[in-house]
């Protein structure tokens, strides 16, 4: 297997890098949890589902064959969807609102649901990497690359030079593409 990029997942499987693991846990547990809540599950159920998913992940990650950026996301999506279905089925016996089950009944809206799942995960990336940067660097990236403000305006607001804004942006984007390739690449 050619390892072109050192993705977060790849690093998890290859080496034991606790920082990467730390980010992994936060990103995925919170991302999955918020998506599961969005499907209508209450906190206790959603937390149980996340816990279940991690039990599975921890069992299977060491032997997981990483076959390109999308496969992990797809694999995780499958696990998550199945756990949600199982929980919804189980809950149906306990008089849970019907729409919770409906969401997992068929495959009709699957592409949409998977995309939404991915968006929930991506939305957590910023919170897990922000702390690694000084506020100026992070703000330069955020205002310029995320909010789309011109670099010159950002430089002026932050009182730093244009070069600093560009380098901040380039570095963080490069890291996103490398470490979170599973999520940010199509």
């Amino acid at each position: 297997m050619q390892t072109t990029s050192l993705t977060l997942l790849h690093r998890l499987c290859q080496i034991d890098e606790s920082d990467a693991w730390d980010r992994f846990v936060r990103l995925y547990s919170i991302g999955i949890y918020s998506w599961v809540r969005r499907q209508g599950f209450q906190h206790e159920d959603a937390a149980d589902i996340v816990q279940d998913i991690f039990v599975t992940l921890l069992q299977k990650l060491p032997t997981f064959e990483h076959e390109g950026p999308k496969s992990f996301r797809g694999w995780l999506w499958t696990i998550t969807r199945n756990k949600c279905r199982a929980r919804a089925r189980q809950r149906k016996l306990e008089f849970v609102p019907a729409e919770v089950c409906d969401g997992f009944a068929g495959k009709d809206d699957e592409p949409f649901a998977e995309e939404e799942f991915r968006r929930h995960l991506i939305s957590q990336i910023a919170t897990v990497i922000k702390a690694d940067y000084t506020p100026d660097v992070w703000q330069a990236f955020w205002q310029h690359a995320v909010e789309g403000k011109p670099a010159s305006a950002v430089a002026k607001t932050l009182g730093i030079n244009l070069w600093a804004v560009y380098t901040a942006k380039a570095k963080i984007i490069a890291r996103l593409n490398e470490e979170f390739a599973d999520l940010v690449s199509d």
Binding site: I122, A126, A145, V146, L176
Partner: peptide, 19 residues
């Protein structure tokens, strides 16, 4: 240099749009 950027979909996720 200005044009190096994030995919607009990613930026939108970062901003929490539609979430």
């Amino acid at each position: 240099a200005e044009s190096i950027g994030l995919d607009s979909g990613i930026a939108s996720c970062f901003l929490g749009e539609d979430l």
